[in-house]
Design a protein around this nucleic acid. Structure first.
Lengths: 342, 342
DNA sequence: CTGTTAGCGCCTTCAA
DNA sequence: TTGAAGGCGCTAACAG
């Protein structure tokens, strides 16, 4: 149904090759001929078939992005950066929501490979399951050997020998920094609501928290760590569990800002004032951190920049695999304060 | 670099045609042959070249989504629905952020046409500029005549004769409903912070507000309508302008929840309690509506469902262009209450 | 400067 | 049940 180059050629009274040359502009064509061709292109409303072109070049101009859920503000931020950087080089970014399901993730990888994506960017925490790791590494090798660049984004490289570039977030560092912030305010009994179990991000953020406590010589009561995921609901449930267990804490550090938002709610519902009675801190500095009242103290993660960096690595000149670690920064706001005396 | 079907054929000791038949499964092949072919496919880690296939079928399996900004929760919600529905039919969704710029929007349309997208879904409010309308209508006709389905989502059809399917949001209706909610609580001096000027969504939400007031016989002071966009900042600035002008109001209705969140902030900063001194209401029921304190009274818009509906229209059996209007629903929460006496 | 030719990877007749 | 041949739309050689 769409117009083809041959039809344009016929209309302009030239050969297909000439039309192609006008379109691509990498070749001398007489001005008058060019005019006629462009005229015909406009009249027929012709657009080159990207597939036919991809067949020749074995490059498609598409960037695959595989993430848990693009409507989650964390992923949305990164995806935005990727999309922007890709668009600047006339590349199309294809977003695939894996819902955190490895099977779906692999299925999308396959689809993208079929479309000969120039690069695939895997965003977000990875399962720590060794079986997954093995499979992922194998897939990664497959993609690379078939000419698709692979970038891991927000997750560490699956192993020493695993190929591909990596944009890591300094999760442990940021987590330690915000923990020290709470310690500096005078908190000693800090509860922690984790992310989903068995994910790299969860582990490293928790590790940062523990290490900062250890460094300060503060012991962590085991009942102060409650498991959750990255949702508001987890924050609410986490605080409710802490309160039900009558746990003794003056601050809550949450795996991310959504969890922190949920925690603030639950605390308020239980009649505890934030930060007067309990301080709450989050992570990621999502846009919603300033919707929460009091505004969340959190750790800024430059999401959009991470996305751009990933594209840069994907198409950068460097042929060797590189690892970039993006720094994080403490953002003190109103949800944290010194603990009440006593 | 990637493996081709011919190589698989060679490895399996059969002809390319046979491999193709095994892959597509629409044709009888001897069981033993099938086995050998599948073996070869696995060994070589072969994936069909989607471009070569697209060349034959003139269908690509991709759905283009053009929106302002996928990291905006409104668009993110719709995009999520689209992506889910598309994935269920093995289609890839390509997200393009136009940043609200018509030129970029058209550029993406061009790109998507080049990729022979099976359908293009245009999401979000459209400029009301007649020049834009004309251009958009022309483009739409072009796409359709070249075999790409077009669905407008969250914007009205550009005109009577404009082609394509439409998923409309009942903006005027929802806006009228929430206005009545405020009226029922006893508010008479309601300020309104609008969306960006000259956009269909802005206009229809404002119209709903006005019509509900008119219906109730309440006159609207012109200084109570302040212009903004769909951001938190606009909400903040809007309230500050109202306060600076010493405007007389007991409630603020915002164009969406982000604006409402900003409004709540500014009111609190000015020492006005919500809802005791001033009620605030939003629109869209974005996830962040419950992060705001007090939780926002708003109008629920089924974003994900809208996305799914759009895909349905795009690939549904119906050949005629259809218009679906998605209903909205009032969600009363804590940010609205009866005005203080006096 | 322009036209002709061949082929990218695959699928679909048509024959065998 | 399988193979051979042609062509989808385009571009990169190679002539002219």
């Amino acid at each position: 149904m769409p117009v083809t180059l041959v039809e344009v050629a016929a209309r302009a009274g030239v050969s297909p090759a000439t039309v192609s040359r006008v379109l691509n502009g990498n070749y001398p064509v007489a001005e008058s001929t060019r005019q006629r061709v462009q005229q015909a292109v406009r009249e027929l409303d012709y657009v080159v078939n990207a597939h036919a072109r991809a067949l020749l070049h074995s490059t498609s101009g598409i960037v695959g992005v595989v993430l848990n859920d693009a409507s989650d503000p964390f992923f949305a931020g990164i995806a935005r950066g990727i999309q922007g950087a890709a668009a600047e080089t006339s590349r199309l970014s294809v977003i695939c929501n894996s819902e955190g399901d490895p099977e779906q993730e692999f299925a999308f990888l396959e689809l993208l490979r079929g479309h000969r994506a120039d690069a695939v960017i895997l965003v977000g925490a990875a399962p720590e399951d060794p079986e997954y790791l093995a499979e992922a590494t194998a897939r990664a090798k497959g993609m690379l050997s078939h000419g698709t660049r692979l970038v891991l984004c927000g997750r560490p490289a699956p192993g020493e020998d695993a190929p591909g570039a990596v944009v890591e977030i300094d999760n442990a560092g940021g987590s330690a920094a915000i923990t020290r912030h709470l310690l500096d305010l005078g908190h000693r009994r800090i509860a922690y609501i984790t992310g989903p179990d068995g994910r790299t991000t969860t582990t490293s953020r928790l590790a940062g928290f523990r290490s900062a406590l250890a460094e300060a010589g503060v012991e962590l009561a085991p009942d102060l760590v409650v498991h959750g995921d990255f949702s508001r609901e987890a924050g609410r449930a986490g605080v409710e569990r802490l309160l039900a267990a009558d746990a003794d804490f003056t601050a809550v550090l949450a795996a991310n800002d959504l969890v922190a938002a949920g925690a603030v709610h639950a605390l308020r519902a239980a009649g505890r004032r934030v930060p007067d009675d309990v301080s709450v801190a989050g992570y990621d500095d999502l846009p919603t951190a300033v919707d929460v009242w009091p505004n969340l103290t959190t750790v800024h993660v430059p999401l959009e920049e991470i996305g751009r960096k990933a594209v840069e690595l994907a198409f950068g000149p460097s042929d060797q695999d590189s690892v970039v670690t993006v720094p994080t920064a403490l953002v003190p706001r109103e949800s944290t304060a010194a603990p009440a005396a006593g």
